[in-house]
Write a protein that binds this DNA or RNA. Structure first.
Lengths: 143, 143
DNA sequence: CCTTATGTAACTTTTAATGTTTCTTGTGTT
DNA sequence: AACACAAGAAACATTAAAAGTTACATAAGG
């Protein structure tokens, strides 16, 4: 099943931005992320709308952080991308009022909601600053 | 993103089978599930391979439970369908050895693994017999 | 032998992300 | 003012896996 790698991609971009020292163009980011500039713009647009990054046109333009990484959590980024369901598991449409189908779907929905709640709670606990510092430590120790 | 509703569908089918009193043809199940017989066969085949159901050809043939519902959990069914990743969230390919990308992916992978573990643990706690009885109670109380 | 029903192959459809091309708009430089 | 740079955005193709569909082979009962 096709995956949505926007979260992974945009987190990667934000941390690169943090280290970049100047605005990064969509082309720059595209090269860092192994994708193309249009995909970068499309994905970053969601973050711009939530005020996490800003974009400038023209010479020396490009993308910059609008907030420090300490003030952005994984949850914030996930939410900015639009919280569609996180699961590949879907429920059948309950067209014919079958109580069995209702019961099955309710059971699955309950479990998925609990798992999603755990996931989002974890996402809230991790700031991008933590992520960035972890990678830097990892990098210095050469592991 | 396209959902995989095989789990919901096949659980629905198994509980119907339990109440059916005789083997149910793929056509019967297709009508109950709002889908077509070939999809039913394809999905049920995975359960047959794991010994949860059996199928007979010819007159009075069709699908029957090969184990009581008390001996089948949500986890068993989920696993029988083949445990692809449960999440729509995917990680980017780590092509260019970027430590930032590695760090981001590791953080996301850790959280997703924890959430998936919780989900599977919950699935193990629920037998299809429990599901069936819950729906029956729900049905009798008219709620 | 005929009917029923599974088993299976081959092909189409669906859906959202992703890839790509092209054009417009805005902004700084010369 | 003209130009170059870069985001914004529209339009279309590609991709992947479930799901839908058609067709036919296989097996088993009547």
């Amino acid at each position: 099943m096709r995956k949505d790698s926007r979260l992974s991609r945009v987190l990667h971009a934000l941390i690169h931005l943090h280290h970049y020292g100047k605005p990064a163009t969509s082309d720059d980011l595209g090269k860092m992320l192994g994708t193309n500039p249009v995909v970068v713009r499309r994905t970053m647009a969601a973050l711009r709308e939530q005020g996490y990054v800003s974009a400038l046109k023209g010479h020396n333009g490009g993308w910059s952080l609008a907030k420090p990484l300490t003030e952005i959590t994984l949850y914030d980024v996930h939410k900015a991308l639009g919280e569609g369901s996180v699961f590949t598991i879907g429920l059948t449409d309950e067209h014919n009022n079958c109580p069995i189908e209702h019961g099955v779907n309710k059971a699955l929905r309950d479990v998925m909601q609990e798992a999603e709640a755990l996931m989002l709670a974890r996402f809230k606990q991790v700031s991008l600053a933590q992520l960035a510092s972890e990678f830097e430590r990892h990098d210095r120790t050469g592991g």
